[in-house]
Design a protein around this nucleic acid. Structure first.
Lengths: 366, 366
DNA sequence: AGCGATTTTGAAAACGTTTGCAGGCGATTA
DNA sequence: TAATCGCCTGCAAACGTTTTCAAAATCGCT
């Protein structure tokens, strides 16, 4: 057991109250000498404050709950990474709960987190409805990050998908492509809608007419990309470039093109979206838009801590202190140009930083 | 704020003690009728016990600390998944800390977790030395899971790598391959050593002589696999199959073979290890050994809870109650046969269950 | 010395639980 | 009928902090 504040105070020859004040960053006056003595003593004895006891008194646990739709999503580890890195700066920790897309589990999780009197909640890729009744009544701040589907609720952080699509189309146009096919995701998805918008908008800006013949929808899988590309190849006037709304469909498109005896990017350029691992491992390596997951995580953490601050500043009295209905924060992605669009690029397969092997290679050997 | 036990007791017209006893699964006698009344009342009023207060009294927080070497490793999400699913059954939650391979952060994390009086710690893919002094003195159980490097410490869960390699070689031999090259990882890695052992052992069991000419080492990257395969192809008597110690090197090997104008698996079969996403997205899809990450996580969670139980049963007196120096628990992987070794297999790219897109496809649409 | 102002300390009351102890009450037993 | 025993309940003391309030010490002045 760690030693208690009382014991520490005892050996320091002071009362618990002074010991407490010496350790805390309280502005309460305490003799400089005494403080130093207590501090060094605490160090020596390895005193660790009991956060449960403290939390009990202060109603602050320095803990944020993370409710994940699925920890196995390719994005969530990056989002968590961003969240935690930001929280760490303010000495917050996070307890993470994975719901596996089960709404019952999700709602249960909220209660469990309240039971642990966490200070706030971040929903990651959640399906939870906009406002959560219990959280409102408990007056806890909560934030959504990377919601994939439906309406983007208040207090949430998402990707500027429209901007990402714009980057892609601008890139292709700069490479002299004028007939750019688009394999979109299914309708109803935030990403599909926004990316289509960006696609159309950019074409229009360059006075390229929108042609519904070269716009198809797929269910996000490799097969869908393959089939869509097959269709494009049969057109009398076939596209010179294909933009797929995610990397998997882009991969499928590349396979279809190669199976037809054509080359990527020489005959048809292909661009994906997401920058998943496969984008750097495919042949040719895939031009894509990197999802700003880390940055989204950071932004979400920042948002929830802000809400906490303002709520506390105002005395935390009113239930909707931090329910300022603000616009979603949109984080822009980044175009990663690789071989599938630009024949001058010659990467050897470049793992991303989060690729474990690369990352292990950088550290000391036994 | 959730209502407190005292308030609940008040409206129920009983004392806090009886209310507490009615709710807890304590074997202490309490009138059946009263208990029911309290229980329904608690339900109605949405009573949630304050776990901080409870923990303060009981020295039990129902929280396990997870210290990750890197949350971005391709394995850790699966390991966490397994851990949490097991913990959930016993109402345990976990607070996870990502160290990004920084030993200082790691050691700091231990102190922070102790401050939060967690019940135990699981080190995931950690580099932390075998025994952790602070944890021993604090008498908290801790467990290692999927340590990648060096000696496997006590109380740890790892992969039965030798068995995995055996599966691969047996599979290739069953397919009439007698000259099986091996691209191993770097020495010093637990995986490299064990997989080599499995490789040699299985060859020996089938009376195939070990030929060092067809065994190379790589640094786990795609390039390494590519170069190794190039070397094999130049041999006068070239191998008919290549076993690479991970999927990335296997992918590189396939690329080299294809660049040489040969076919996989028709000219040379290729097998990888890990079953990362790319294994199912590559063309041909890659035969590989699935890492039993989920199962390892479960085992680790089970182990740490067991240690907790035995420690409590024995009164938690002695510091090494649960430091029973036991052998590491080895979890076997599973061979996944795909196109790169077996020409009869015809998958369309089959995402694994943890592939987000597959997983999203299975749920309701808006 | 005395007095107010200021700095520094300590006692004690919380925070929301669990739990040992003691008492009340009805039923069983002698 | 009195003593005993079980079951049920409540009081109060913890658990380790923070924080209010008041008292004590120090200081600067006259």
């Amino acid at each position: 057991m760690p030693i208690t504040l009382e014991q520490l105070a005892q050996v320091a020859g002071v009362s618990v109250s002074t010991a407490s004040r010496a350790l805390g960053k309280s502005n309460h006056a305490v003799n400089a000498e005494t403080r130093k003595r207590i501090l060094t003593l605490a160090e020596q004895l390895g005193y660790r404050p009991n956060l449960m006891a403290r939390g009990l008194k202060t109603e602050r646990t320095y803990t944020i709950g993370l409710i994940l739709d699925s920890i196995l999503s390719p994005f969530s580890p990056h989002i968590i990474h961003g969240i935690q890195d930001h929280l760490k700066e303010f000495n917050y920790f996070s307890i993470v709960i994975n719901t596996d897309s089960n709404p019952e589990v999700e709602s249960h999780a909220v209660y469990d987190l309240i039971s642990r009197s966490i200070d706030g909640i971040i929903f990651v890729e959640s399906w939870m409805p906009d406002a959560h009744p219990i959280l409102d009544v408990e007056n806890k701040p909560y934030v959504f990050v990377h919601r994939l589907f439906g309406r983007i609720p208040h207090n949430s952080v998402c990707v500027d998908e429209q901007h990402g699509a714009r980057l892609v189309v601008e890139h292709l146009i700069a490479l002299e492509h004028h007939r750019i096919a688009f394999i979109n995701g299914l309708p109803g998805w935030y990403a599909s809608e926004q990316r289509l918008l960006g696609y159309r908008e950019t074409l229009a800006a360059h006075e390229i007419p929108f042609d519904s013949e070269i716009v198809l929808e797929g269910d996000w899988g490799v097969q869908d990309g393959y089939r869509a590309a097959e269709q494009f190849l049969q057109l009398s006037e076939r596209p010179t470039a294909i933009f797929a709304a995610n990397d998997l469909m882009a991969l499928g498109a590349m396979y279809a093109i190669q199976d037809a005896g054509l080359g990527v990017p020489d005959d048809i350029a292909v661009v994906g979206y997401d920058d998943r691992d496969i984008a750097s491992f495919a042949r040719p390596t895939l031009t894509t838009v990197r999802m700003p997951c880390y940055e989204m995580g950071q932004a979400a953490a920042k948002l929830v801590l802000n809400m906490l601050d303002t709520s506390r500043a105002s005395g935390g009295a009113s239930a909707d202190d931090f329910l300022q209905t603000q616009e979603p924060i949109k984080i822009p992605g980044e175009l990663i140009v690789r071989e599938s669009s630009d024949r001058t690029k010659r990467h050897w397969v470049q793992p991303r930083s989060h690729n474990m092997l690369m990352h292990l290679m950088n550290r000391r050997r036994p």
